[in-house]
Design a protein around this nucleic acid. Structure first.
Lengths: 218, 218
DNA sequence: ATAAATTTTTAGTCTAGTCTAAAAATTTAT
DNA sequence: ATAAATTTTTAGACTAGACTAAAAATTTAT
């Protein structure tokens, strides 16, 4: 049984490993977890002792199969709870994160299985991210960032990268939600902003926004 | 914001204070929490510093209004989650306790208010215990232990004292649930056992059982 | 290829929470 | 009313987790 803190480290390493495709540096973990590199080194040693990560000094870490499974289980719980909060308890997608951060650490196999069934086995959370299955498998998504979409192409919003409350509120304000249909109708090269068509209205968005929005093209 | 451990102490003191009607001794808390008296002394000092309890050395403790409110809030969360687990997620009443012990510490006013509404504002948990309201008020119940019921009297099961899984399983096995109608049809003085009529069948129960079952008489 | 910059680790400190063993206070018994 | 028993507190130690400052290793730059 892992502690809350251990679970948070595993989760962070899981995300970084996917994103970097490589072994994960102490500094990268420290940055992601808003803590100090020295704290990360301490914790990594504990995780290595428990066979959750492979660690060689100065070489960064990788999850073991056991570590990856543990991380995926926590992420599964996080995302299932997010679905519950949005679908059943009237949370908006920018309100769920902090609560799900707490709920993801509740230990009860029955609870999470029953919750899964209660929600009718959802495959994606309210931000469009896939929910790992019981075995810890997680679907690769063919989403791309909006900034990579070509001029005049249609696409559908399937998720966000940065899921900070600020960004999600911005999206809400401009009526961009999961499933929204978008069309890129102009691209400015000087600041890399773009104009999109959303709900029949034109909207100019910065590079920061288009880099944080995931879409699927046809 | 209180820690998990602080919340557990407040809850224990709350229950002991109601039960004893008086100030609560270090030893009583230690016993209830399955910890050592010295640990209790340490924690009590912290709670006193935070104005959650009144403490004078060697004199035991009492909750302040603020402490009582905090304790009631935790108990409110515990009991609401129990209702959720039993009513929505197919938990039986002997399975809910350990999970509710974890869920009661989740911090989110919105979560608990929405859960309350989702469950349609329940007044009692699956063991028949009253759920404190938002202000921390908790209804006195006029329940008595079954062992005090007179011969030939009818009553309705409204709760349990000891809610250990073993005891709850015993009740399930004999089809005693919240709302069950019981009638005391015999009392043995030599071992204080009694015979009751439940679902048209006779059942002999020990003093241990009749002392742990709360009922309402008419 | 060596110096400079950066990253990572170590060593030592801190807090929360717990424990054991011993001391102090209180209660009970004679 | 004093001794014995019990309860409570204190003192000191331990673990998990985090931090600062300094040392060591690695990477980058010239």
């Amino acid at each position: 049984m892992n502690t809350f803190s251990e679970e948070n480290y595993l989760k962070a390493i899981f995300h970084l490993e996917r994103h970097l495709g490589d072994s994960v540096s102490t500094n990268a973990i420290a940055k992601k977890m808003e803590t100090k590199a020295s704290s990360v080194t301490d914790m990594i040693k504990k995780l290595a002792d428990k066979n959750l990560v492979i660690y060689k000094k100065y070489q960064g870490v990788n999850l073991t199969d056991q570590g990856r499974f543990s991380a995926a289980s926590v992420i599964r719980k996080h995302r299932l709870w997010e679905v519950f909060l949005v679908n059943e308890l009237n949370f908006s997608w920018d309100e769920v994160h902090d609560v799900a951060e707490q709920l993801e650490h509740i230990k009860s196999p029955k609870l999470i299985n029953e919750l899964d069934a209660f929600l009718e086995f959802p495959t994606h959370d309210p931000h469009g991210d896939p929910i790992p299955d019981k075995e810890g498998n997680i679907k690769k998504t063919d989403k791309i960032v909006l900034s990579k979409v070509s001029l005049n192409e249609d696409c559908i919003c399937v998720g966000v990268n940065d899921s900070s409350a600020d960004f999600l509120k911005y999206l809400d304000k401009h009526q961009i939600a999961l499933g929204s249909h978008l069309k890129v109708i102009a691209k400015e090269s000087f600041d890399e902003s773009m104009t999109i068509l959303i709900n029949k209205t034109k909207l100019n968005i910065s590079k920061a926004v288009s880099n944080n929005l995931y879409v699927k093209t046809n």
